[in-house]
Amino acid sequence: MSQGKSKDVISITVEFSGGLEMLFSNQRKHILSIPTKDESGEASNVAFLVRYLCEDVMQDNRRELFVLDDTVRPGILVLINDADWQLEGEDKYEIQGGDNIHFLSTLHGG
């Protein structure tokens, strides 16, 4: 609860699973501080987070395994605090401090 930069960034947990973690340094859980506002001064939403992850976090260059047409590719579920993002406004959901955003690739093995 210290001050300083706390107005400009929010701390969130971002998780990757179902194989997506391989695109993010093989690390499933990332504690990130992301800007409160996006490029145009709007409150940061999930669409912005996806851009931010591609540009500032992802080391792997196989970007097409994560995004397609400016959003997460088909076959990835986005979970906002353990709920399908379709329940929360999809990529327009405005991120709150402490949120857990989980990107999950569906599995097909059996």
Partner: peptide, 17 residues
């Protein structure tokens, strides 16, 4: 839940993975 199928190159089978 999954309106569109995943790109074929993203699908990993138990044999491969």
């Amino acid at each position: 839940i999954f309106p569109k199928p995943p790109p074929a190159e993203s699908v990993v089978s138990c044999g491969d993975g």
